[in-house]
Amino acid sequence: MCFETRFADGAMSLKSELQSHVASLRRYALVLTRDPVAADDLVQETLVKAIAKADTFQPGTDLRPWLFRILHNTHVSDLRRAKTRADAASDLPEPLARECQQTQLELKQVLGALDQSPEAQRLPIILVALREMSYAEAARTLDVPLGTFMSRLGRGRAALRRIVEGVASGKLSLMHRKEGGE
């Protein structure tokens, strides 16, 4: 295949590849920020940084973890500046299956529990839930060894379970107390 064809094919596949990655970045950013406007701001900031760093990208390596790492680092920097993600959960758009109020309630519980989890455990859970990349790619995104990533994911999921069950049992006991008092 001549260079001309290679370049033309490469440009086309790069465009569609990038389009798919940017859609993934918007999803990740939305879960991180819980706010569509803030999510798009984060993606924009990520792309601006990626453009500035494009000369450091190693062709032949995977673009997705590279972009996610930039977004992740940008988000962490933003958090450090803002120091808080106060009241963010209430701004998350309703899930597609909006007919189920129970789902909404559970989502809020899970996101609330995620907020209570250490950041090192929260991010692996979100990255895996996106189903956009392998464990190894997700580990590269967070710049940690695979073993560390797996450990954080496992501990994070266990902690998430405990927090959600704790919240649920707390609500249950509150309801029982109310019922008993009436």
Binding site: D40, L96, I125
Partner: peptide, 21 residues
Amino acid sequence: FDNLIHDAARTADTQPANLRI
């Protein structure tokens, strides 16, 4: 939990296109 987070993330796909992005 994974499904809940995944579905929440997918709502990004229903957001209007962002011209700047």
